[in-house]
Design a protein around this nucleic acid. Structure first.
Lengths: 195, 195
DNA sequence: GTCTATAGATAGATAGAC
DNA sequence: GTCTATCTATCTATAGAC
């Protein structure tokens, strides 16, 4: 029971820290802000995390591991470079929209990470980029895609798709599926595929 | 003379604040950090800016005004939607590479702006987006471009091109012109134009 | 495991001498 | 216009009672 209650508190700290870091930035959020959001005293946070920095590392690494697992799962068994590109694009955009705070932090707070944690995150990020890059390279090799440089195009497409969270709102003019379709078309055309 | 020396100090404060904000984030940078970089005492900054927030507003608004003027200048007299799209893309990417800190701050520190300054920046940003959006809309109208939604594609392309500053290094594998060519090709293909 | 209380450092901003 | 000195508030983190 006590253990269960403890796990709940830790998870609540994680959720609130994530939301606050995403909204205001790591440096702008104090342990008091997090404690107030959770409904405990600032000192109590240190029963669950040894430091503020450790909360950030925990959030970012958990996100990267989850993201990689989900991506590999989404790509599993998908055949053909065009299909694989579409699968990746749909997965990536959907994931951004489902977990905008995680994504925003992983992208924005790299500079707030101290050296050790940062290297771990970089490794995971490179692993994630490699999934898309290999699809593009395969497409170029087959002659299916027309791409000048697969590594550059990988970063270009990831930036394009990740940027969706900056402006998209569920109650906006276009719904989620319509927006995803726009982006998928842009991605496909950008590698030289006409529908 | 004294006035001249004063102007220099103010400009040095601006330059150092810009660099530090871009590197560590607005909240993570203290007035002491800026003063140390400039080589003056913290209190002396207040002879030039009434508050830390005012430095940020100054930097962001100056950037947006300069960006808009430069963009309008670059587009001036360019005829034809394809040419105008290429002109905008080349201008935008070159500007990002020339002023990466300005661009990064304008994008990242919107959340650090208090309400009044933020509205002013939003107006300028919308004005900038409109330049590209109008090119895309014109191309769709003519049948030159194949774009599902010009507003969505505008944001997608801006995010794609802006992301270049995250990874590009002048001493990297590809030089500036090669990278710009990659991006311009991706932009053109993304609107359905094959070279 | 959470509380109260607080240590020790640092934040933005101001006052007054020069 | 810059300096030294400092105010007040807040920061991360810790100590010890319960």
């Amino acid at each position: 029971m006590l253990q269960q209650r403890s796990k709940d508190t830790k998870e609540t700290i994680r959720l609130n820290a994530l939301r606050l870091f995403a909204k205001s930035g790591y440096s702008a959020v104090s342990m008091r802000d997090i404690a107030n959001a959770v409904g405990i005293q600032p000192g109590a946070i240190y029963n669950h995390f040894p430091s503020k920095q450790d909360i950030l590392v925990d959030l970012m690494m958990t996100h990267m591991v989850d993201l990689l697992a989900a991506a590999n799962n989404a790509m599993d068994g998908v055949e053909g470079t065009r299909n694989r590109l579409v699968a990746f694009a749909r997965f990536h955009i959907s994931y951004q929209l489902d977990f905008p705070d995680h994504v925003f932090i992983a992208y924005m707070e790299l500079r707030s990470l101290e050296e050790t944690g940062r290297q771990d995150v970089y490794v995971k990020r490179d692993e994630y980029e490699a999934i898309l890059r290999e699809v593009l390279e395969q497409g170029v090799k087959e002659g299916t895609f027309k791409v000048a440089n697969a590594a550059v195009q990988t970063r270009a497409l990831l930036a394009m798709m990740t940027g969706i969270t900056v402006w998209f709102r569920e109650d906006g003019e276009l719904n989620r599926d319509q927006v995803i379709d726009c982006y998928v078309q842009a991605v496909l055309q950008s590698v030289g595929i006409q529908e």
